[in-house]
């Protein structure tokens, strides 16, 4: 029908879990094999080797909750930081632009684990940040920079004609951004944000070194008293896998919903 271009931009960022494409309706997919495999392994262990495994799985849910707590707090903060960083990166104001770009540059150049150590141990010289807060701050500081790049790319993917149309109606730049550009950029942004979300969830395992009782930390505590290292970490790994598999499915469903207005 119409001959204008329909832009579909994919942003590939980071090392998140593979998000299944909505079109992939085949019975055999990597996602399905992983899910069925993980569930089967879990069921098998709990039923046939209930001796240590029941004990382990009863011990871990607290950790899962903490993992979620850190993940959700961090991603929320990271999205806010990312939005401002992204806007800063495309800002015509040279100072704002430089601040945002420098932040991204610095954060990208320091490993997350080092950032965690720095906020919790190094800064303790001046101010003692509680472990949980340090964890959330470090994670969101780090992921905010990545998010900033995602937002920047998403905003830039929206055709300039949309901005011109909005300005010509009398919207100012800020209104244009919020009413016209961001609602459209969101669709391009969502898949990589989902990816970052899952990557962040996995990276929260790093906070276990700050004495935050997340899933990995709880596993470590259990193993160090029972010496069931193999069994405990098997269970921890299975739980991480199941969580990321479910989340990646949710992201793909959301992605599909958001894409609807471009369908004919």
């Amino acid at each position: 029908m119409a001959d204008h271009k329909v832009k579909t931009v994919k942003i590939d960022v980071g090392d998140g879990a593979a998000i299944p494409t909505p079109k992939d309706k085949g019975l055999v997919s990597a996602w399905r094999i992983s899910l069925v495999g993980a569930l089967a392994a879990l069921a098998y262990l709990l039923i046939f080797h209930s001796d240590p495994y029941w004990e382990i799985i009863k011990f871990l849910p607290d950790g899962v909750l903490v993992t979620f707590e850190v993940t959700i707090s961090s991603i929320s903060l990271a999205i806010v930081i990312g939005l401002f960083t992204g806007l800063g990166r495309i800002s015509q104001n040279r100072i704002i632009n430089l601040v945002a770009s420098t932040y991204v540059e610095v954060v990208r150049g320091i490993p997350l684990l080092v950032q965690l150590f720095y906020i919790y141990y190094a800064l303790a010289k001046f101010v003692q940040v509680p472990a949980m807060l340090a964890a959330i701050l470090a994670m969101s500081f780090c992921y905010g920079a990545y998010m900033g790049e995602v937002f920047r790319a998403g905003i830039e993917s929206v055709d300039n004609g949309q901005t011109e149309a909005s300005l010509s109606l009398g919207f100012n730049r800020r209104q244009t951004m919020f009413y016209v550009i961001l609602p459209q950029a969101w669709r391009t942004i969502l898949p990589p944000v989902g990816n970052e979300f899952i990557a962040l969830l996995k990276d929260t395992s790093l906070v276990s070194i700050l004495a935050v009782a997340d899933l990995l930390r709880r596993g470590r505590e259990f193993a160090s008293t029972t010496f069931d290292y193999f069994e405990t970490y098997t269970m921890v790994a299975l739980l991480y896998l199941l969580i990321t598999l479910v989340l990646s499915k949710l992201v793909s469903i959301m992605e599909e919903r958001l894409g609807q207005y471009d369908q004919r």
Binding site: G161, Q162, E164, S168, N172, Y179, Y261
Partner: peptide
Amino acid sequence: NKVRTELGMVFQSFNLFRHKTALENLTL
């Protein structure tokens, strides 16, 4: 921005807001 509200503009490439229905394009 005020002056622009008095100037309607029609573009070669239409530039309708893609995330809005036809009616929503008019009412926004």
